[in-house]
């Protein structure tokens, strides 16, 4: 969305949203970023192409970018990115959590129920649960 269509200004809009949700002090920038950033390797059909070893090798740069931030959570913009970045974490003993922005937005609003937390880590699983009694488990 940034490099291919709307350009860097839309990346600024997304930073505004993310910082508003999590607090500016909790936002960690990765490098390089914006249009200079690297693709995670989930797109273009790579996830479904049947080359998992090559896909993970492609994703090594992204994994190292994420690890270098030291951040506990990585927000991904689409399903391809989510599946790939989640997998890159899993094959490294899960050093980070991979979340959709809607999850954090609802968490910050205090309206995230117990069954909407599949991708939150242990540190946030039980934080400010909306209607905890509605859990299926």
């Amino acid at each position: 969305m940034v490099r291919k269509s709307y350009g860097d200004p839309v990346a600024e809009d997304l930073r505004y949203v993310v910082k508003a949700i999590i607090g500016e002090e909790n936002f960690v920038e990765m490098y390089p970023n914006r249009s200079n950033n690297f693709c995670c390797g989930g797109g273009g059909g790579f996830l479904q192409s049947g080359f998992p070893d090559q896909r993970r090798e492609y994703g090594r740069i992204k994994a190292e970018q994420i690890l270098a931030t030291g951040a506990k959570y990585c927000i991904t913009p689409c399903h391809n990115c989510h599946a790939q970045v989640h997998d890159l974490s899993d094959v490294r003993n899960h050093p980070w959590e991979t979340v959709h922005i809607w999850t954090l937005l609802c968490l910050s609003l205090g309206i995230l129920g117990p069954n909407e937390r599949a991708y939150l880590g242990e540190d946030l699983k039980d934080v400010d649960v909306f209607h905890p009694e509605s859990s299926n488990f």
């Binding site: 690297f38 273009g44 192409s49 080359f51 896909r55």
Partner: peptide
């Protein structure tokens, strides 16, 4: 060809 994600970097 199937390992390029067409990211356009």
């Amino acid at each position: 060809s199937w390992m390029c994600s067409m990211c356009q970097r």
